[in-house]
Design a binder for these strands. Structure first.
Length: 566
DNA sequence: AATGCACGCCAC
DNA sequence: AAACGTGGCGTGCATT
């Protein structure tokens, strides 16, 4: 078989045959070309060749299964359409779960993993079905953008997982040792924790107390006359007792040790060279109902501020850290077309803007009120302040109030680009049904009302959190393109290379968390990267909201260590 | 010994 | 100060 050559190729469907990968080239205004079989060994080279000559959109069943293999072979692509993610958005109730094929009875072969076991004819047909579904949708343009952004996210996620977050293992050890004392033998408490435990036992007169056991701790506290119902830190913090201070300190440090201690470092940070390592979380694109990413492995969704000092750029490199300021309220103003709230958001600090418009008296109140509106607060300070927003910004708050009412009725809601919220579970409908029966008990009625309010808060937040996730996807996709233009698509020699860190030779994304990105870049390009991050944010705002005057300011920092931020 | 759940805390 | 959305995950403890 000679090299594939199609002047007008725009899309290549990658699927699996009986013992081969199958490439089907779809050219503009032409029937699908004859499928081309390639072996697993040939595939990366063939993909690289087509990518270099045609920059096609790769259409494949599951980026999370296909792309890591290509990345391992040193091959990167510009764009793709992920059929699994596309199906999940277009048909949420019938979407396949990720990695479904992994549960097949037979052992997956390398080719299975490369192509996720979707027959080429079926893959082409599914692709056509998805295109048709988009065209028939009420807002095809928005949906097309969402699918493109989701797939770009899938590429970015795989690349970030592959490249890893730069991690200084010695610095992490210094942080731990400074707070906990030297690394103890396995199964032993570090010295500082042991000392705190001794103090706690002394003050509670409980000689054998294990402070790690909530049940024992609660009993010991009550026996010592401390009237708490739980051992949560906020409840303990209100108590005046000599045991409280060491106990709170113990909880903080015990958490650090168990979540991001030496065991975590051993398990999750892969050594690269010298002190340098890489943390390789797995991002799960679309893993959250709202469209946010989830992660699995190493707790990447919750890297505590305490250990961020261990995130350190390689020598001669920098981290460009950027986060979108008050993203969700800004997204709400834009999707609602609320000019007055957008005006309050004109400056760098939206919350101060609310104060300046006379809605609330302090920035802290503005934040509490706004988050209360987004989350559906009903009590406390947030519940008291939120009505002011209803009066001041009826359009913006109307969007979340309407979403809440729809959820309370058991209806689905949609994000700006068209991601649909899930249906309430059957148990929810059952509860409503039972509560409306004539012989319904008071408990049943109360419980059903509770469930109604809960689901309303979910759909309320869904529209904003989901649209913010869409903005972030577009931001990242735009940024990825700009970084590639700055030289981020080449890689070091690879695993077989003689020395030096393995990874992209130019600026590349290394971390993403809802409204924040980190780029690892050669020092001399850091300013260009900072500019690219800003331009990408402007681009994302335009993509989603066109000419509506919404601003999405960023906090951007060029640093050696993640701890220098915030 | 393996599994599932509740708790509690971290992140945005 | 606590209740007000989305998650991951380690630990203790009960169940199987």
């Amino acid at each position: 078989m000679g090299p594939v050559s199609y002047a007008a190729a725009v899309e290549v469907v990658l699927a699996s045959g009986p013992d081969r990968a199958v490439l089907t080239v779809l050219a503009d205004d032409a029937a699908p070309a004859e499928p081309v079989d390639v072996t697993a060994e040939q595939l990366p080279g063939r993909v690289a060749d087509l990518e270099a000559r045609h920059s096609p959109r790769w259409v494949w069943p599951d980026t999370a299964r296909v792309y890591p293999r290509l990345l391992a072979a040193g091959v990167r692509v510009g764009r793709c359409h992920d059929l699994r993610l596309g199906r999940a958005i277009l048909d949420p109730t019938h979407a396949a779960q990720p990695h479904e094929a992994a549960h097949d009875v037979h052992q997956p072969t390398l080719l299975d993993e490369l192509t996720a076991q979707l027959d080429p004819v079926e893959a082409v047909a599914e692709h056509a079905r998805q295109r048709t579904a988009v065209t028939a949708a009420p807002e095809p343009g928005r949906l097309r953008l969402l699918l493109a952004a989701e797939s770009a996210g899938a590429l970015t996620a795989a690349e970030m997982s592959h490249d890893g977050l730069p991690w200084d293992r010695n610095e992490h050890d210094r942080i731990l040792t400074g707070l906990l004392g030297p690394r103890p033998q396995p199964g032993r408490r570090p010295a500082v924790l042991e000392d705190l435990a001794r103090q706690i036992r002394h003050h509670l007169a409980a000689a054998s107390l294990n402070p790690d056991s909530p049940a024992e701790l609660l009993r010991a506290l009550n026996a010592a006359g401390v009237e708490v119902r739980t051992t949560r830190k906020w409840e303990l913090a209100q108590i005046e007792h000599p045991a409280v201070a060491p106990l709170l300190e113990y909880k903080k440090l015990a958490r650090l040790l168990s979540a991001n201690g030496w065991a975590w470092l051993d398990e999750w940070v892969r050594p690269v060279a010298g002190e340098q390592g890489r943390f390789h979380p797995e991002y799960v694109v679309g893993g959250v109902v709202t469209g946010r990413w989830a992660t699995s492995g190493g707790g990447a969704l919750q890297l505590p501020k305490q250990v961020r000092g261990a995130v350190v750029a390689d020598p001669g490199w920098r981290l460009v850290v950027a986060d979108a300021a008050q993203l969700e309220p800004r997204v709400l103003a834009a999707m609602a077309g609320d000019e007055r709230m957008a005006e309050a958001a004109r400056g760098a600090d939206l919350y101060q803007g609310l104060v300046d418009q006379g809605i609330v008296d302090t920035r802290a109140h503005a934040k509490v009120a706004m988050l209360g509106a987004l989350y559906g607060a009903t009590s406390g300070e947030a519940g008291r302040l939120m009505p002011r927003l209803l009066r001041a910004y009826p359009r913006a708050t109307g969007v979340v109030e309407d979403a809440a009412r729809a959820g309370e009725r058991g209806e689905t809601v949609r994000t700006w680009l068209g991601r649909t919220s899930p249906e309430p579970p059957l148990s929810w409908r059952d509860a409503q049904h039972r509560a409306s029966a004539e012989d319904a008990g008071a408990d049943e009625v109360r419980r059903a009302r509770q469930l109604v309010r809960d689901w309303g808060r979910f759909t309320r937040n869904f529209v904003v959190q989901g649209t913010a996730a869409e903005w972030a996807l577009c931001w990242m996709a735009d940024l990825r393109g700009r970084l590639r233009a700055l030289g981020g698509s080449g890689t070091w020699p690879g695993p077989a290379g003689p020395a030096g860190p393995i990874g992209p030779i130019g600026p590349h994304l290394v971390f993403f968390l809802h409204d924040e990105v980190v780029v690892h870049t050669p020092e001399e390009l850091a300013d260009d990267v900072a500019t690219a991050v800003q331009e990408a944010a402007v681009g994302a705002g335009r993509l989603l909201f066109g000419t509506f005057p919404a601003e999405f300011p960023l906090d951007v920092a060029v640093v050696r260590s993640y701890a220098e931020v915030g």
